[in-house]
Simulated scan of single mutants.
Amino acid sequence: MEQILRPIYQERASHPDTLGVILVSKRDDAMNVTDTFDYVLLIIVKEGEQPIFTKHYMYGNSKMVMHIVTEKRLRKWLFIGSNRRLVDWIFFGKALFDRNEFLYKLRSELQEFPFYGRKIKTGIQYSKLIRRYLEGKEFFERGDYLDAYNHVVDSLHHLGRLAVIDSGLYPEVTVWSQVKKIDPAIYKLYEELVMSNESLEKRLELLFLASEFLINSRTHDGAQHILEVMLTQEIWTIQDLHSHDELSYYSTDLEVFMEHLIDKDYIIVEPVIAKNESVFHRQYRIDKAFVESEYGL
């Protein structure tokens, strides 16, 4: 198949913006990794008119997909963990073109999983965990148990991914097989939720209690990245935070995360008078004394 696809990817490889080309073949033990396609051609470019450009091809009975992805979008996916197949493609795909060892360095980066990378990934997963937990608890308190169940499952996935990241590994598509080895306690919670003979209400009640404890125990690690960013200036508006290159990865979970850190005394709200003197802008700063005692920053 490489011979058949060569004219397609060689045209792209000749462009100076192309950083690497990877060919991924469908495996019998992981058919969904390629989104049901027989082959995936992943082309990574420095810049592009669109962050993602996709084309579908067929050859005989085989179907193929080509994704052209900018480096910025690739890194966003890797930070957020929203495209777990991508990690499999990078690790197990065949490198057909590698400009200046871009793919080699990227694989090494993922394998070594530098400490800074762990901090931002931990923060992003932790912020998602908080949102899913709070929304699930709201559904539970209203008696909407099936909606609450969906949110609890998601929150456990984020807990599982946090455990994997904390161990120095990268969460794979089969994250629960990793969690079973790395953190059996979280895996046991997942089993109890989906397999217990207790009523759904009782299972959820127990899971919310356990989740609350786990969320609180992980605040120290989950908050480290955002606190280090916020220490770079004295005062922040919410727009400042959303506009920051790294904090933009938190997306819609950022404000829920901020409120959580305010509740936990990591961040202080500073009221600033608006045009109407009875209304105040909310601005934010780190409680430096508290953070220094927690982290020694």
Rank of each mutant, 00 (worst) to 15 (best):
T70H: 02
T70K: 07
L74F: 02
R75F: 12
R75N: 15
R75T: 12
K76W: 06
K76F: 06
K76C: 08
L78M: 12
F79G: 10
F79P: 07
I80Y: 13
I80A: 08
G81W: 08
G81T: 14
S82E: 15
N83Y: 14
R84K: 10
L86Y: 01
V87C: 10
D88V: 08
I90C: 02
I90N: 08
F91M: 03
F91Y: 15
K94Q: 14
L96E: 02
L96F: 07
D98P: 05
N100R: 15
F102E: 07
L103K: 03
L106W: 00
L106E: 00
L106F: 02
R107N: 11
E109D: 14
E109I: 13
L110N: 09
L110E: 08
Q111A: 07
Q111I: 14
E112C: 05
E112V: 10
F113M: 09
Y116G: 15
R118G: 14
R118D: 15
I120G: 01
I120M: 13
T122L: 12
T122V: 05
T122K: 00
K128M: 03
K128I: 00
K128L: 01
L129D: 06
L129K: 03
I130Q: 07
I130C: 13
Y133R: 01
Y133S: 00
L134H: 06
L134P: 02
E135Y: 01
E135Q: 03
G136R: 03
K137G: 05
E138H: 04
F140N: 04
R142H: 06
R142G: 00
G143S: 02
D147Y: 11
